[in-house]
Each structure stands twice: as structure tokens, then as C-alpha cells.
Design a protein around this nucleic acid. Structure first.
Length: 244
DNA sequence: TCTGATCGCCGGCTGTACGG
DNA sequence: CCGTACAGCCGGCGATCAGA
């Protein structure tokens, strides 16, 4: 998707990633971003639905500013101190008239001009008053994306609870995992060796703890099951340490 | 110990709206 | 018609973590 062109409605604020989806929205200069990995949310479809649900809550919690408010913020290039009010100069650089201008939409731009020749020094005040009347016709919120308003009106989905909860990193079985259990590996140090099962768990700042279960003494199945049970214990020790 | 995957964070680029 | 601000989209960097 090229830059600047809005995403399709379903994908508003959502960028596909090789590993999942990224949601990124900006409201009033504040950025709201979160990542939804395939692995963490139980597959591409579930990750996308989680991403869309989170995007929708952000859209609902942070509606765009009212167009009327936005139109009244003073810009850095404003010279008159009054948004939407400016003067027209003659070829010699002398003020000829005061103008009030308000952009209501593509087809409707309000303009009023107060010539100094007709109004004298009151022309500026008239332009300011006219600008206020013009703002009275400006309604609605700033348009951010074709999908934005529809999302804000949409009721929350009722099936969100049926989606699987987010999994922690240690629960994720990686694509290159060969045992089917994260943190559990089967190792054969050399040809002819019957091999052994290893349970290994990493904790930040404390390094890894691991324990091996020999196939020669326990048998393949028992060694594997014991390694899986050991991994469970390692995860429990890790999370209880985190709580402490 | 090395390598690769996940993912949090940040900033650049660009289109649109709007003032001048 | 041009300049500016804002917001969306995109991509990179680096930390964390687990597999090899």
C-alpha cells in the first residue's frame, strides 16, 4: 500500500507485518500503537481480529477534534491574529480590504469581503464578525479516514470473548520447534547416542535454567514427558519470581 | 555461544484539509 | 494556487527470548 493512500476500510490503521499486524493511530499528537503477532494470538485471522478490535476501541475512545475547533487554532503563518481573517493588499502593498473565509467542504467555501473604501476602519471588525457567523455553519468532526466514522458508530462485537487470549512468549511454540512444546528439545550429541530431552527456560537477568532427561536410562517417552513437566515447573518458578 | 524470530519504539515520507 | 499542520503508512533499529 503506497504511502498517503488510505488503507481499505477493514485495514484502517493496520499494517500487515511478516509476523502479524501493527496498529498505529495518532490522535491530537498522541500515538496509539500496538502489535498483534500471529504466534501470540493463535493465527493470522485471530491476530487480525484482535488488531481490529483494539483499533476500534481507540477510535471510539479518541474521536477527532471538532472541525470548528480545529478551524480556530492559530497557525504559525497567520498574520492577523484571527484565524480565517486576513487582509487583501493592493499592488503597492497597501491594505485594500478585510476578508473572512471558511472552508466548509470541497464544494462550499464561504467568503466575504469588506472593502476599506466602503467600511473604513470598521472593515476588520466586520470581517471578524463574519468569520464567527461562518464558523456557525461548520459542523461535524475532522475527517481522518473513510472508515473512521462508521467504526465510531459501530456497536462492540459480542464474540470478542471467544477469541483466544494473548499468550506469553514462553507459551509460543516457534515455527522451528521440533518437539511441539516450547522450551523442550530433543538432543543427540553424536551419531549412535540414544539422545536426551532437555527442558530450558530463560529469565531476564538470571540466565537460563535447564535440566536433561536421558533416553538411555528413562526411555524416549518417559524422558520426553519428564522434560515437559520440568518445563512447566521452570515456568512456574519464573512467574513466581516475577511476582515477588 | 550463535542465530533467528518476536515485538516495542521511533522517525521519515506523503496526502489531505485548510488558511493565506 | 501555495504553504503548513496534521495524521496515516511504512520501514528501520534494537532488546528480548528461544532454538540450534
Amino acid at each position: 500500500m503506497p504511502k498517503g493512500i488510505p488503507n481499505p476500510v477493514d485495514m484502517y490503521g493496520i499494517s500487515p507485518r511478516p509476523w502479524g499486524f501493527e496498529v498505529s493511530l495518532v490522535r491530537n499528537g498522541v500515538r496509539y500503537a500496538r502489535l498483534f503477532g500471529h504466534a501470540s494470538y493463535g493465527g493470522p485471522q485471530q491476530a487480525l481480529r484482535r488488531a481490529q478490535a483494539w483499533r476500534d476501541t481507540i477510535v471510539k475512545e479518541h474521536p477527532p477534534v471538532a472541525r470548528k475547533d480545529r478551524a480556530q487554532t492559530l497557525r504559525s503563518n497567520n498574520k492577523t491574529g484571527e484565524p480565517g481573517v486576513f487582509s487583501r493588499l493592493s499592488a503597492q502593498g497597501k491594505p485594500v480590504a478585510w476578508l473572512a473565509k471558511t472552508y466548509l467542504g470541497n464544494e462550499e467555501i464561504l467568503r466575504a469581503e469588506f472593502d476599506l473604501a466602503d467600511w473604513g476602519p470598521a472593515a476588520r471588525a466586520h470581517a471578524i464578525g463574519e468569520r464567527q457567523r461562518q464558523l456557525g455553519r461548520m459542523v461535524g468532526l475532522a475527517r481522518l479516514h473513510p472508515a473512521e466514522e462508521a467504526i465510531r458508530r459501530r456497536p462492540p462485537p459480542d464474540d470478542e470473548a471467544t477469541l483466544p487470549p494473548k499468550r506469553s512468549k514462553s507459551e509460543i511454540v516457534r515455527r522451528n520447534n521440533t518437539s511441539g512444546v516450547s522450551g523442550v528439545q530433543f538432543k543427540t550429541p553424536r551419531a549412535g547416542h540414544p539422545g536426551y530431552w532437555v527442558a530450558i527456560t530463560y529469565s531476564a537477568g538470571k540466565g537460563s535454567v535447564s535440566r536433561s532427561f536421558s533416553v538411555r536410562t528413562l526411555g524416549y517417552e518417559v524422558a520426553r514427558d519428564m522434560a515437559i513437566a520440568e518445563r512447566q515447573q521452570q515456568l512456574q518458578a519464573k512467574t513466581s519470581d516475577d511476582d515477588a
